[in-house]
Computed example of a mutant assay.
Amino acid sequence: MIPEDLFYSAEHEWVRVEGDVAIIGITDFAQDQLGDIVYVDLPAEGDSVDGGTVVGELESTKSVSDVFTPVSGEVIARNDALEATPEVINSDPYGEGWLLKVRTSEDDVTSGLLTAEAYSALVTG
């Protein structure tokens, strides 16, 4: 399940671009590899983030995994509902399981990101 309307990072995050805002989450592949997610640590609203850097953690019953941001900018929202129900990332990674919204500081937000076809080749290759 790799939605065609999103962009992807090699670290298994997805990005939905809405104007100058990038909504970020982890892919279905990533949540499947992690297993049952039990804890989420995300940056605070107002934090500045740099594309390609670690901005948080996801803890599962198997391991702890870093969350990367594929874009640079300011965190304008975080999915606080995940604190009480982190398992939503497993059940709906592309919908209610989103992680962050970042107001981007980049002219071309999708530069360096993968298309759905390229991401599919990465995970099935």
Rank of each mutant, 00 (worst) to 15 (best):
F7Y: 00
D80C: 04
V109P: 08
V21Q: 10
P93E: 05
V38Q: 11
T61P: 13
R103T: 11
S65K: 13
D41T: 04
V88Y: 00
P86E: 12
K62M: 07
M1D: 05
S120C: 11
V88A: 13
V123D: 10
E11D: 00
A44M: 11
G19R: 06
I76N: 07
A84F: 05
R103N: 05
E57C: 15
E13N: 02
H12V: 00
R78Y: 02
S91I: 15
V109I: 14
R78G: 03
I89P: 05
I2F: 06
G73M: 07
Y39N: 03
S63T: 14
D66H: 10
V21A: 01
G46E: 13
A116K: 15
W14I: 01
S91G: 06
S111H: 08
V54T: 15
T115Q: 13
G35Y: 00
E74P: 08
A84C: 12
V88F: 07
T124P: 07
L42M: 09
Q31S: 07
E59S: 09
Q33L: 05
K101A: 08
N79K: 06
E74C: 10
D50K: 15
V40L: 01
D28G: 01
E74S: 04
P86S: 10
L42S: 06
Q31I: 06
E59H: 09
N79D: 00
E11C: 04
M1A: 01
D32Q: 14
G73W: 04
A121F: 03
T124Q: 13
L113G: 05
A30Q: 01
G51V: 11
G95T: 09
S9C: 07
P43C: 06
S9M: 04
L42D: 02
D36G: 04
E106Y: 00
V40N: 01
Q33P: 03
T110Y: 01
G25S: 07
T69V: 12
G97W: 05
V71W: 06
I26Y: 03
E45M: 10
A121Y: 09
Y119H: 07
E96S: 14
P43E: 06
A81F: 07
L34E: 08
G112H: 03
V55C: 11
V54C: 08
S9I: 00
T61K: 14
E59N: 05
G125L: 15
V38D: 04
G56T: 12
A77Q: 12
P70K: 08
D5Q: 10
L82C: 06
S72V: 10
S9H: 05
I89Q: 08
G35E: 11
V17K: 02
L58F: 11
G35L: 09
D47S: 13
D66F: 04
D50F: 05
E11N: 04
V38I: 10
E74Y: 07
Y94L: 12
E45H: 00
L42H: 00
E74M: 10
L82Q: 07
